[in-house]
């Protein structure tokens, strides 16, 4: 592990702007996500959080700005210039969705094996090998299988390995989605509202899982979350977006008491509304 890669932030977003016609969804946003930390991206509905995610994972090509990913090895990638499958396969960015997107007709285990596809078919020789069952491919397949089983154990789905992913209960699907993302061996894991729809106990388990992923040190986590109790408890670093701009950036304790953040979430105080009303003569 070279010091160079380990010291720089995994993700650096600089002056990111995304326009859809006349609508500016994200306006000059800059932030960083560091290794072994959980960075939370919060903000009211429509603040542009998911748009930032979509730019990072290649769904959108940003109008302006630079998104740099630095791997442990020191290798750097400019994500805004890459195609979506390469962002995962080469740069090592994985993501989950607000509305779960598993492969519902495939088994739980197969979902985790698909995520390791690019590792299994690196180069044409292995792709061909997979067809005729070469020894090198078999060994890679065995490794992939044991990695998948390791993750099944960690998210507590070993007993359900052969069930269709679409038949799992909601909370299990959420955990499987994270396991699948981790099976791509990401440097950066982007989670879009991972705790949405989970009950208190499941949410607690999720926090434990995310903390343990971070503690292993190879993966940085960037998450969007609405549940403030989750954000304040597990994140090391919080970025608040409102109307497409960053209005606060810092540790949770500081962000919590920031007046801009309070205003964005709760609206402005009554006397200010009264002032504005006086000005416009209402």
């Amino acid at each position: 592990m070279s010091a160079r890669g380990a010291d720089t932030p995994v993700l650096q977003v600089e002056h990111l702007t995304m326009r859809f016609g006349g609508l500016v969804a994200v306006d000059d946003v800059s932030f960083e996500a560091r290794r072994s930390e959980i960075t939370a991206l919060i903000g009211p509905n429509g603040a542009g959080k998911t748009t930032v995610f979509n730019c990072i994972t290649g769904f959108y090509k940003p109008t302006e700005g630079m998104i740099t990913l630095t791997q442990v090895s020191g290798q750097r990638y400019l994500l805004e210039r890459m195609d979506d499958h390469v962002i995962n396969a080469k740069a090592g960015v994985a993501r989950t969705f607000q509305n779960i997107r598993l492969f519902p007709g495939m088994t739980v285990l197969e979902n985790l094996m698909v995520a390791q596809h690019q590792m299994l078919t690196k180069g044409p020789a292995r792709a061909l090998g997979s067809l005729i069952g070469l020894a090198a491919y078999r060994q890679a397949e065995a490794e992939a299988l044991s990695f998948a089983i390791h993750w099944l154990e960690r998210v507590g789905l070993t007993a359900r390995a052969d069930q269709a992913a679409g038949d799992l209960p909601y909370g299990d699907q959420r955990r499987l989605e994270i396991a699948r993302a981790m099976c791509t061996r990401p440097e950066l894991l982007c989670l879009d509202e991972p705790a949405a729809g989970l009950n208190a106990r499941e949410s607690e388990e999720l926090n434990g899982l995310l903390r343990s992923i971070c503690a292993e040190g190879n993966t940085a986590i960037l998450l969007i979350e609405h549940d403030m109790s989750v954000v304040m408890r597990i994140s090391d670093h919080v970025i608040v977006l409102d109307h497409g701009s960053v209005i606060a950036d810092g540790p949770p304790s500081k962000v919590q008491n920031d007046e801009h953040v309070i205003a964005a979430y709760l609206g402005v105080p009554d006397e200010e509304v009264a002032n504005v009303e006086k000005e416009v003569g209402a």
């Binding site: 598993l102 007709g105 698909v114």
Partner: peptide, 18 residues
């Protein structure tokens, strides 16, 4: 497997590195 994954959700398959 990757073929079946693409059948079910092409975008998600791409995000899994396929």
């Amino acid at each position: 497997r990757s073929l079946r994954a693409c059948e079910q959700d092409r975008m998600m398959a791409a995000l899994c590195g396929v």
